[in-house]
Amino acid sequence: MAQTALTLKKNDGTAANWRTWLGIAPFLLFAVLFLFLPSLRLFTASFTDPDGNFTLNNIIQLFSEPFIVNAYKLSIQISAVTALGGGILGFLMAYAVTVGGLPRSLRSVLITFSGVASNFAGVPLAFAFVATIGRQGFITHILRDYFGLNIYDHGFNLYSFAGLSLVYMYFQFPLMVLIMAPALDGLKREWREAAENLGATTAQYWLRVAFPVLLPSILGAMILLFGNAFGAYATAYALTGGRIGIVTIQIGAQIRGDVLYNPGLGYAMAIGMVVIMAISLAGYSWLQAKTERWLR
């Protein structure tokens, strides 16, 4: 026993030598082969012209080629709209089951539902929405037959910006619920009591204490939602068959065949996306750290 304890202790105390690092070598090797090399390849290729020389042209073209600029614009708009919409709805739902006074049993039901919904995406989700508010959809019919409202006459189209946003929301707001429920649990009862005790009304408590405390979590979660929508491909492809020009769809087209007539530009487009995702993740982590520091 003493022997074992001593060996363990020695290994902890001194700086780990290369032999200790060997323990995670398989993992690192895997990550290099199937994550870093592929990413690096895209990265170097986006700085290479068709003849194999270094160039910044591809990066410059990202900002000038209307086809690409529009794709980014559209992706950013859809991601922002669904992050905001899904964020607000998700927050309100998480609020309802945590501190909103609903029965505790509803909480675990909602969490399970949210786990399912945030993972229910891609082709089945697209089909589900076609069956719901497609031209012959369930809701479309109900609205037409009982409310005399034909949404397709009023410019709605499931295969458009609005339609895609509606579909994305389906996995966006449950994700928000999953992130915000624990954050709302983090609101201590004593804060509310202390605030009341000092004379604050419920509104004042929310405005001055609860909401500011939650704000970094809310923003962080919304950034995560943004990235979640920005990187989505399967759902959009299944729904529109590639007819909506968001970044992931255009990259997909570029993989299938060189639609940009410039492979380097395709790589640059992919890298541009990675950069945006990285910024989102960094923003999320920063806000997360801020909250954790507060709530320590």
């Binding site: 201590k188 004593e190 804060w191 009591e193 202390a194 605030a195 005790n197 001055r208 204490v209 500011p212 405390v213 507060w294 709530l295």
Partner: peptide
């Protein structure tokens, strides 16, 4: 009122 866990507003 003063609470055991301080209950200061962290923000």
């Amino acid at each position: 009122m003063i609470f055991q866990a301080y209950a200061l507003f962290p923000n």
